[in-house]
Design a protein around this nucleic acid. Structure first.
Length: 737
DNA sequence: AAAAAAC
């Protein structure tokens, strides 16, 4: 330290009084050996003549030395931090900070990203990997924002941030720097930093964080989005807990050991709570019967909404039990007119929160299920895509917690009392964005528990105490197994996309999770395609469920126009380009991740900005790319079925199925990304001639009628579907021909 | 057969 300061400082001894004055004074063996030999004495002796001599004679040496240190400051803030940190670390106490190196890496990362991205911007995209290009795109739109965001995201979340505040300054300054890069420092910095610091630090880093750098990125990005997307919500979490988050996270670790103890309490608490709070619950005895009934019937093969509505009570005997009740509870759109959320039994705060969310008056499915959920009954809700199911279960769920809660619910460390499960992370996030504001309006907290991001934040939130957990099965079960998530006091469980949650691969984890909730917890199952597939869950967990749907939800009342284009395989790419190169938000579905990826690149090459969404992307990219569409920075999203269900993006007016779906339910859900809340939309499915028959059958099962048309690149029908009005380029082209 | 869901 002193040496550096001295050399770098090239200033009068004043600055070094503390260390300098002492050394010579001590004159001890150590001080003497060091300082006198090298800089220790020089400075003082030279002090008098110093400045001049130095500037002249020592100039070069000093400067060279100084450069090493100063250059970094000016050019490379990244460098600086690292160096200073090095020196400081020992003092700071390495024990805890072995993790720090990570910071350095972060600093370096940004640069790296920039490098890759910049060239891309340059316009050499073609040469690069498809993935990079995508990343670049965002930059194009967000140039200014990205770099900054990445940096912020990475550090903010970290507990190290506090210590690293210096680095933060760097962040802020970097952006500017980014601009200057080209001129100079960029190269310098790169050479200096990355090689040395990174190599050494990286290895250790992996150990510390446990995760590779990539994971870190993922973790941070998501956060950033949270902020952007959930201004209110994001802060909501922070209002009470903000700065403490990091700290809290650490504590959790220590608490780990303590939790086991909790486990012991679980058995007791849950039981008591449940019994006391939900005495009204129906007896278990009936379970075995009802489920069975549900099992038999519901929708044997392909029951149609239309049929149902048309012939009430005309169902097969086995279905009668369920269906009859269903019919009895079916709500007519007319019945909803004039009703308010308050009329349905929701409190003022919740009603206001809903209004702020844009829900002024209840939709049919909401009017149908909210009162029943408030009664405490198990509910099966079926409302078509975009009909408002999230609020249908979210609002009454919060109201229920309020009724059963009381002040004791705010105590730190309280266990969650409601659980909402969703099949994808994006959907879980989306649900939370709706439920959180509602919960916050009455002082309740929610937290998201899903994979792909570090768990410490999630665990920290749980330890502080939350009322509603929203998440995906994997991470939830993981945390349960770790003893960090106790669902024993959960007395309301919601399964969104319930039928999908009963699919192979989901069912068992979901069952195990539900078994961790209170025995008599209220179960709410919702889906646009709710069918007998949920029998497995209904049989085991639901009691005398009320089944609700909205009458008249058939294609005749739909706002979606369905088309099928029969195309030659070789024409597929060009037709997709023609379709996607439109104005307006478009979602393209592919059957595989690889094709989604390839198609995204292909569209890029064709000049159509597009982003991908599939399970091969890290969570940061998934979140970011989806946000690109919602924010309007990009109009085209190419996705696998990860985006088929539940995802709501305003104003998607065209859904393109580059690959036809295999199941009618998949068709229904994909198509449901458009035509939401009564808006109009178009769904176009591309199929090879050989698939025509199969497609017709699928549409029949989905109770959808669509026009089949042979199409070739350039055909008017394609432009028509894309919503192009024959003007501009098109007219010119035709004129030219 | 694929996709999703933990690390």
């Amino acid at each position: 330290m002193p040496k550096k300061n001295h050399v770098g400082g090239k200033r009068p001894a004043k600055n070094y009084d503390p260390s300098y004055g002492k050394r010579p004074a001590k004159g001890g063996p150590k001080a003497g050996s060091r300082s006198p030999g090298h800089r220790g004495f020089r400075p003082e002796v030279e002090d008098a003549p110093r400045q001049k001599n130095r500037w002249d004679a020592d100039d070069r040496a000093a400067r060279s030395g100084a450069r090493d240190e100063r250059a970094p400051r000016r050019f490379d803030r990244d460098d600086r931090a690292p160096r200073f940190n090095r020196d400081e670390r020992p003092a700071a106490g390495r024990g805890d900070r072995e993790g720090r190196p990570a910071r350095f890496d972060r600093d370096e990362r940004a640069p790296r990203f920039n490098r890759d991205e910049r060239p891309a911007r340059g316009g050499d995209r073609e040469g690069r990997p498809a993935r990079f290009d995508r990343d670049d795109r965002a930059p194009r739109f967000n140039r200014d924002e990205r770099p900054a965001r990445f940096d912020r995201d990475e550090r903010a979340p970290r507990r190290f941030d506090r210590d690293e505040r210096a680095p933060r300054f760097n962040r802020d300054e970097r952006p500017a720097r980014g601009g200057d890069r080209e001129g100079r420092p960029a190269r310098f910095d790169r050479d200096d930093r990355a090689p040395r610091f990174n190599r050494d630090e990286r290895a250790p880093r992996f150990n510390r964080d446990e995760r590779p750098a990539r994971f870190d990125r993922d973790e941070r990005a998501p956060r950033r989005f949270d902020r952007d997307e959930r201004p209110a919500a994001g802060r909501g979490d922070r209002d009470g807990r903000p700065a403490r988050f990091d700290r809290d996270d650490r504590a959790p670790r220590f608490n780990r050991d303590e939790r086991p103890a909790r486990g012991g309490d679980r058995d007791e608490r849950p039981a008591r709570f449940n019994r006391d709070e939900r005495p009204a619950r129906p007896a278990f005895g009936e379970r075995s019967e009802r489920p069975a009934r549900f099992d038999r019937g519901d929708r044997p093969e392909r029951p149609s909404h239309g049929d149902r509505g048309a012939r009430r009570g005309g169902y097969q005997p086995q279905d009668d039990v369920v269906l009859e009740r269903l019919e009895a509870e079916a709500i007519q759109a007319e019945d909803v007119e004039g009703k308010t959320f308050g009329d349905l039994g929701l409190g003022g705060n919740i009603v206001n929160a809903l209004a702020e969310l844009g829900a002024a008056a209840p939709f049919p499915i909401q009017a149908a299920t909210i009162p029943v959920v408030l009664e405490g009954r198990d509910v099966l809700g079926r409302g078509r895509t975009g009909s408002g199911k999230t609020i249908a279960f979210g609002a009454p769920l919060v109201e229920r917690l309020m009724e059963n809660g009381g002040g004791k619910n705010r105590r730190p460390g309280r266990l969650p009392r409601a659980l909402i499960l969703a099949p994808t992370r994006e959907l879980a996030l989306q649900i939370d964005r709706t439920v959180q504001p509602i919960a916050r309006s009455v002082g309740l907290f929610t937290t998201q528990i899903y994979g792909g991001v570090p768990q410490h934040r999630q665990v920290g939130a749980l330890q502080r105490g939350v009322d509603i957990v929203v998440g995906t099965p994997g991470r939830i079960e993981d945390l349960i197994e770790q003893g960090r998530l106790d669902l024993s006091e959960v007395n309301v469980v919601v399964l969104d996309e319930a039928d999908h949650m009963c699919d192979l691969g989901f069912l068992e984890p979901v069952q195990r999770i539900i078994r961790n909730t209170a025995d008599d917890s209220q179960k709410l199952l919702f889906s646009a395609t709710l069918d007998k597939g949920v029998a497995a869950l209904v049989n085991e967990f639901l009691e005398n469920p009320a089944v609700h749907e909205v009458a008249g939800e058939d294609q005749a009342s739909s706002t979606i126009d369905h088309r099928v284009l029969v195309v030659e395989h070789r024409d597929k790419d060009r037709i997709l380009e023609q379709l996607a190169g439109r104005n307006g938000k478009t979602v393209i579905f592919s059957r595989t991740r690889a094709y989604a990826e390839r198609l995204t690149e292909q569209l890029e090459d064709a000049g159509v900005f597009a982003v991908a969404l599939h399970g091969d992307l890290n969570q940061a990219k998934r979140t970011r790319n989806l946000h690109q569409l919602t924010s309007g920075r990009v109009d085209v999203l190419v996705a696998t079925d990860v985006a088929a269900r539940g995802i709501h993006v305003d104003d998607i007016d065209l859904v393109i199925q580059a690959d036809a779906p295999d199941e009618y339910k998949t068709y229904t859900h994909r198509a449901g990304r458009t035509g939401r809340a009564g808006r109009e939309g178009t769904v176009v499915t591309l199929i090879p001639r050989s698939r025509r028959r199969r497609m017709e059958e699928l549409l029949s099962r989905a109770e959808i009628s669509a026009e089949f048309v042979d199409a070739f690149p350039g055909d008017d029908i394609i432009d028509e579907i894309a919503g192009r009005v024959p003007t501009r380029a098109q007219l010119e082209a035709k004129t030219a021909e």
